Computed example of a mutant assay.
Amino acid sequence: MLTTRAFKNGNSQAVRIPAAIAYPDMDTELEIERIGDELRLRPVRRDLGDVLSIFASFSEDFMQEGRGSQEQSPRKAL
């Protein structure tokens, strides 16, 4: 088990995540949840519930002309 220490960063408490278990992408948005004396970190889950409202915001003529030519390049046989 790896250990680390909490420290003060401005008005917040911060924790360094050891490189051995760090997320590969430094821009990963994380959720944090307290359960008893545990703190759980996980990547933010994108909720698809909003997708319908996003689609509803498109104009009625969106993609009216289609996607254009979608021809695929010939591939080499395996």
Rank of each mutant, 00 (worst) to 15 (best):
Ile35Gln: 12
Gly36Trp: 05
Glu31Met: 14
Asp47Gln: 04
Arg42Pro: 00
Val15Asp: 03
Asp27Lys: 15
Val51Ala: 14
Ser73Thr: 05
Gln70His: 04
Tyr23Gln: 10
Ser69Glu: 08
Pro74Met: 04
Pro24Val: 02
Met1Asp: 14
Pro74Phe: 06
Leu41Asp: 07
Asn9Tyr: 05
Leu48Tyr: 11
Glu33Ser: 11
Thr4Ser: 15
Gln13Ile: 15
Gln70Pro: 01
Phe7Leu: 06
Pro18Tyr: 00
Glu71Ile: 07
Leu52Ile: 00
Gln72Gly: 05
Ile32Trp: 13
Arg75Trp: 02
Glu71Trp: 05
Asp47Trp: 03
Asp37Thr: 09
Pro18Met: 03
Arg34Ala: 10
Glu31Cys: 08
Glu33Tyr: 08
Pro24Thr: 09
Asp61Met: 05
Ala14Gly: 11
Met63Glu: 10
Ser57Ala: 14
Leu39Met: 11
Ile21Glu: 04
Val51Asn: 11
Ala19Tyr: 05
Ala77Asp: 03
Phe62Met: 02
Arg34Val: 08
Ala77Asn: 07
Ser53Val: 01
Ile35Met: 03
Pro18Lys: 01
Met26Ile: 12
Ala56Thr: 01
Asp47Leu: 05
Asn9Trp: 04
Ile35His: 09
Met1Pro: 15
Glu31Ala: 10
Val51Phe: 14
Ala14Trp: 13
Tyr23Leu: 06
Arg67Met: 10
Glu38Gly: 00
Phe58Gly: 03
Arg42Gly: 09
Met26Lys: 15
Ile32Glu: 10
Ser59Val: 03
Glu31Tyr: 11
Ser53Ala: 09
Pro43Ile: 02
Ser57His: 03
Glu65Cys: 01
Ser12Met: 08
Met26Thr: 11
Ala6Met: 11
Ile54Ala: 13
Asn9Asp: 05
Gly68Asn: 07
Ser12Ala: 08
Ala22Thr: 02
Glu33Cys: 06
Ser73Pro: 01
Gln70Ser: 09
Val44Thr: 12
Ser57Gln: 13
Ser69Gln: 10
Val15Asn: 05
Gln13Asn: 15
Ser12Lys: 12
Ala20Asn: 07
Leu2Arg: 12
Lys76Ser: 07
Tyr23Trp: 15
Thr4Leu: 08
Pro43Phe: 07
Tyr23Glu: 12
Gln64Glu: 12
Asn9Phe: 07
Asn9Pro: 00
Glu29Asn: 00
Lys8Arg: 14
Ser59Arg: 06
Gln72Ser: 08
Leu52Thr: 01
Gln64Cys: 00
Ser73His: 06
Arg5Pro: 05
Glu60Ile: 01
Ile32Leu: 15
Arg45Lys: 11
Lys76Val: 03
Phe55Asp: 06
Asp37His: 10
Ala6Cys: 07
Arg16Ser: 11
Arg42Ile: 04
Leu2Cys: 05
Asp27His: 14
Phe62Tyr: 11
Leu78Cys: 01
Ser59Pro: 15
Asp25Arg: 07
Glu31Ile: 09
Ile54Cys: 02
Leu48Lys: 09
Lys8Ala: 09
Arg34Tyr: 06
Val44His: 08
Met1Leu: 11
Ala6Arg: 09
Pro24Ile: 00
Ser57Met: 02
Ala56His: 13
Leu2Lys: 14
Ile54Gln: 12
Asp25Trp: 02
Thr28Ala: 13
Arg42Asp: 07
Asp37Leu: 07
Met1Phe: 02
Leu41Ala: 11
Asp37Cys: 02
Leu39His: 09
Met26His: 14
Arg34Gln: 15
Ser59Leu: 08
Phe7Ser: 12
Ser69Arg: 10
Leu52Ala: 04
Leu2Gln: 14
Glu31His: 12
Gln72Trp: 01
Phe58Met: 12
Glu31Phe: 14
Ala14Arg: 14
